[in-house]
Amino acid sequence: MKHLHLGEFEELVLLAVCGLGETAYAVPIQQRIETRTGRAATMGAVYAALDRLENKGFLASRLGAVTRQRGGKRKRFYEITGAGLAAVSAMRQARERMWDGLEWQPSLGLE
């Protein structure tokens, strides 16, 4: 398999899927990114990122069962794969190695 690049927005989506666990589908993913980063992503962007991640093999999806919610329309649930986990942790380690030994401490985002 060729080297799979993980884009910045893709990383956020992937982490969101991780954080949501079993309830990861497009709506909570979009909401989580919005509440945690302040970035209001359009659904088009979210779907596109999910597709890309799935094509890269970092995510797997399945259609949920038909329920009474939202007019019986099914949800597509996402789940992180082993490759996906490896990709996010590699990204995190890379980041940490870059930060390592830096004197200047930036204030961390959300506060």
């Binding site: 659904m43 779907y47 919610q69 329309k73």
Partner: peptide
Amino acid sequence: RHVEMAGDLEELYAL
């Protein structure tokens, strides 16, 4: 993919 997307958007709209 219409079904799932329409469902998602509807849900978001309510939220």
